[in-house]
Design a protein around this nucleic acid. Structure first.
Lengths: 111, 111
DNA sequence: GCGCTCTATGTCCAATATGACATACAGCAA
DNA sequence: TTGCTGTATGTCATATTGGACATAGAGCGC
């Protein structure tokens, strides 16, 4: 019931360090969700830099702010998947590319 | 392939911010974002039914409620991608399967 | 050193999503 | 018909996310 919610909130407070695989207390679904966010966050940064855009430029494209973009790329707990997806789409990334980012998530799991 | 169906559901979901939903007035990014949600919503329903779960059962797994699951499957505008992703993961769907759902969301007819 | 640009982090509060609840509807069986 | 099960839809109080802003840090050329 509240178990996953509470734990998610808890983890959100300090999950910016390192690989998602070391969250030993997370259930597989929770771990995958976190890894998903990390993968998309990394994707946003990668594509943005590839384009030579600043965070402020992407923010403007999104109608958001530089600080939000920074948090997003840091996979801050206060940033939703929605914003990440919108960012990728705002950079013209195709769903097939997004799918690639997601497909990579399941690979590394044991810890 | 499912353009008209997607559009119908989109209209049913009351998707645009202002007037009656019209798919064709959305920018390409906005349209892709909506289609992404539609695809994931359909995926949630498909996998749930495949498993023989009721909406209430999935809701319990999620720590959510039947009404929210119903809205989610209807791609209601009040439901985030986060909840959809969590739902898929809660059903044990692998990221590679989710990637498949997303990969299918390629471009629709340009305005 | 300074100044400039880009990024990180933290705090506001308005906007939005949330679960819970009520209730209506659809289908089916007795 | 009634009763039961599952789904749809609307509302609401509370929780969470949003953009905006301030500010600090990092890197770089001068």
């Amino acid at each position: 019931m509240m178990d996953s919610e509470a734990r998610k909130r808890l983890e959100n407070a300090g999950w910016t360090a390192g690989d998602a695989a070391d969250f030993l207390e997370l259930s597989p679904e929770e771990a995958r969700f976190v890894e998903l966010k990390l993968a998309l966050a990394a994707g946003v940064r990668r594509f943005r830099e590839k384009r030579g855009w600043t965070q402020a430029a992407l923010a403007q494209q999104l109608g958001s702010s530089q600080s939000r973009v920074a948090k997003m790329e840091a996979a801050d707990g206060s940033v939703t998947l929605d914003l990440m997806m919108r960012s990728l789409l705002a950079m013209g990334i195709m769903p097939s590319e997004i799918a690639k980012l997601i497909r990579k998530v399941e690979s590394h799991k044991a810890a």
